[in-house]
Structures are given as C-alpha cells and as structure tokens.
C-alpha cells in the first residue's frame, strides 16, 4: 500500500504582506479570521448571489468548508479595515492558480461605504501588490449580468470584457438562470496603466 501525503504549501512571503491604501488596511487573514470577517455573507442571499455561490445560505460548518484555508500562496482573504473607523467593512478574496491567473472577489458588507469607491481603491491596491509577483500573469473576474455595480467597477478600473456566458449560473434561491460576464486585465497592461497614471 502506498500512502501519499499532500505537500504543505508554504506561504508566499511577499504576497502574504499587508497592503495599505489611502483609506484602508488590507489585512491578510488565516482561516479563522477569514470566517470571522466573512460571517455577514454566510446567510445573506444577495451577497451569496453576487458571489455566485451554490447555496442561498450556509450553516456554520458548511461555511468553514466553503471559505477554505487561506494559505498565503494560492488562496488569500484580506480584511478591508477602514482607517477612519478602525473597523472591518468587508473582505476581498483572491485565488492564484499555477498559470498565474488571479481570480478576484470582493464584498463590502458595511452599507455606509457603498458608493464611496471602496472597490476601486481596494482592488487597485491589491493589483498593484500582486502584479509585483513573478507568479502572477493576469487578473480575472466573473460577475452576474445583473450585478451593475460590479460591472461598473470592472469597467472603471479598465478591465476588458472577454466573455459572456449565457445562462451559466443558476440562482439557488429562485432557480432562475443568469448570464455571466468575464473580465480580464493582463498584469503587464496593469503595470503600464499605473505607470501612465503617475507619469
């Protein structure tokens, strides 16, 4: 009998660092911290739908599995801490695959902060940070066709629409099928954009 053991993933020393933007600290989370900062999402059907999760609500134990184990290498959760109130207003999730694709998802659960450019500032900060890693090649996001705010945010940051999947996500609450949109930003293009903005 051959026993195999999963190789433990070592955290990426650079990517695991804290990120700071003008108004926010983006604090990397371990699993228990990620579960805590994402707790408002677990039973919120609107949030779960915007993330295109498969259930309309999760039990605590299901949520632990759903969140996974942030390892500082392939899976990251960042708590979005607003300097102004010294409190967590949301969280950002990143997965990084072996091809260098960074998949992005964000939820700002503090409604007082909606419409205040949190997405743009947080995402730009994280993209600036991750684009410095040789492991990263591109950024990718998938959104529901009716998620107007996310579509706005991707367009505002300059993401390119690369795909439109028809009837590709079924809402667990209503059984309705939705189209999804795919957005992309190549790392090199992002670096050039940021260079142009500062020059």
């Amino acid at each position: 009998m051959v026993l195999s053991f999963a190789k433990k993933t070592e955290p990426d020393a650079f990517l695991s660092k804290h990120v700071e933007t003008e108004r926010f600290y983006l604090v990397p989370c371990n699993q228990s911290e990620a579960i805590k900062v994402t707790a408002p999402w677990r039973t919120n059907p609107d949030t779960l739908q915007s993330l295109m999760f498969g259930e309309a609500a999760y039990s605590q134990s299901e949520w632990v599995k759903k969140i996974g184990k942030p390892d500082g290498s392939k899976l990251f959760y960042h708590a979005i801490v607003a300097k102004e109130i010294k409190g967590t207003i949301g969280a950002h999730r990143i997965t990084l695959d072996r091809s260098g694709t960074v998949k992005l998802a964000i939820v700002v659960h503090a409604e007082d902060w909606w419409g205040k450019g949190v997405f743009e500032e947080v995402r730009a900060g994280l993209m600036d940070h991750f684009s410095q890693s040789p492991r990263v090649e591109r950024f990718f996001g998938r959104v529901l066709e009716r998620n107007f705010s996310s579509i706005y945010n991707y367009k505002k940051l300059g993401f390119r629409l690369i795909g439109h999947d028809r009837k590709s996500w079924r809402c667990p609450a209503t059984n309705e099928l939705f189209d999804t949109l795919h957005f992309e930003f190549l790392k090199d293009d992002w670096i050039e954009k940021r260079r142009n903005e500062t020059s």
Partner: peptide, 10 residues
C-alpha cells in the same frame, strides 16, 4: 458617475 449613479442609470 459612481457605482450608485450607474445603478440608477441602468
């Protein structure tokens, strides 16, 4: 033209 204005516009 922020995200809320965009929502209203659509």
């Amino acid at each position: 033209w922020d995200s809320l204005a965009h929502f209203r516009l659509v």
